[in-house]
Simulated scan of single mutants.
Amino acid sequence: MTDAYVALENGQVVEARARAPGRTRGELVFTTAYTGYEESLTDPSYEEQVLTFSYPLIGNYGVREERFESERVHPRAAIAREFTEDVAEWLTEEGIPAVDHLDTRDLVTNIREEGAMKCGIAAGPDATPEAAEEELEQCKAMSEHTDIGKQVSVDERQTHNPDGDGPTVALIDCGAKGSITSSLVDRDATVELLPYDATVADVESVDPDVLFISNGPGDPKNFEQAAALVDEYVDDLPLAGICLGQQVIAEALGGETEKMEFGHRGVNQPVQDLRTEKVVMTTQNHGYTVSEPGQLEVTQINVNDDTPEGLESDEMDIITRQYHPEAHPGPNDTLSFFDDVIALTEEDSVATPSADD
């Protein structure tokens, strides 16, 4: 049954089956993850994108809210070879168009060869190829959303684990996954979750022991206020960052970032520590990377393409990771990154990457 269409920027219109109705548009990206579909769909870093799953069956262990990384689904649409009824019902309830019964291998190959591209989707009883093409044209006409942080950040300060015996972490929410907060709370830290556009006064009000820039969607250059905080507190507070956070910190300290051809999205990305030469498997979800590290030292690289996966400065007490050490459902090779962040707050201590040695 054909009642859905995906119009691609390269001129193709792909026929599919509607599993959740609707019309939408966005940047078409793919993930190679074979587990963690609930986590991927609720990851704020996928805001304004259309997520394609390369694994053929999505939904084979149901949908459970305790696995969510945020309160809602963030991709504008979802594509798979086949969605189970559980996932189709969930996305329908969320108002997120979903399509399946198409050749996702061919779709992923297109993205790998031509790069992430814009697309339009029409799904449901009244869907037509022309409707999908209309969505694509609207997507192509739209300028990049420079205030995307507002869509994924908390509106006001939230305190997690207020009675913790550990350090206080000022976590700047540029689209933070819930597992970042829980990983810090598990180490008895008090986490003060602050909006993406938090000011110096906001940070001062929580008197933190470390400033932490979270993951998030889009171009790191759009998060100017987070970069301003890095510039304000470098040398005064330890700094940490994950994914977008690494990019923001690098740019604030004289580095540069660039958009990747199709990004890293999956749960089996190999990363090598340059000091120990050990390779670990990581979960990743990013379309931008650090091209020049500025004042920071590259300590870890992606084995596939040599892009920076870890940046550090012993002198400035900074540690960042491009991948997601907190990844759920896994792998858990690098969870002790959070121990290293906590160690940054200890007097006269310098964090060492225990997860990676």
Rank of each mutant, 00 (worst) to 15 (best):
F30Y: 15
E261H: 11
S183F: 06
E156G: 12
I96Y: 04
A98F: 04
E156Q: 14
L51V: 11
E224P: 03
V63D: 00
E69H: 11
F337E: 09
S54G: 10
Y5I: 09
Y196D: 10
S349C: 13
D3Q: 08
L107M: 14
A141P: 08
A20Y: 08
V73F: 14
V154Y: 10
F338H: 09
T31E: 08
I242N: 07
E85R: 11
I301P: 02
T109F: 05
A16C: 12
P308E: 05
E39Y: 01
V210R: 01
V271C: 10
Y34S: 13
D126Q: 12
I148S: 01
E65N: 10
D202F: 00
L229G: 03
E277G: 00
L193M: 08
E113M: 12
G115N: 02
Y37R: 00
A176E: 13
R25E: 15
S313K: 02
E277K: 08
R112V: 08
G11K: 08
E15P: 00
P195S: 05
A240K: 01
V73K: 00
Q151L: 15
A80V: 03
R76S: 14
L211W: 09
G254C: 06
L239G: 02
Y323E: 00
E277Y: 05
M117Y: 01
A123N: 09
Y55H: 15
D207L: 09
M1Q: 11
N10L: 10
M1R: 13
R67L: 07
G263V: 08
E144M: 07
V290I: 06
R72L: 06
L57Y: 11
I249P: 11
T168Y: 02
R19C: 12
G36S: 00
T334R: 03
D100A: 07
Q12I: 02
G294A: 00
L244R: 07
V63H: 01
I111Y: 04
M117D: 09
V350P: 02
G216D: 05
I96R: 12
S205N: 10
Y37G: 01
L239M: 03
L239I: 05
P97F: 05
T257I: 07
D306I: 01
Y5P: 06
H74C: 08
G124L: 06
S45V: 15
R72Q: 11
E224T: 15
E66A: 13
G36T: 01
K259D: 03
M316K: 15
A252W: 07
V169H: 07
S336E: 14
R64A: 14
E66V: 07
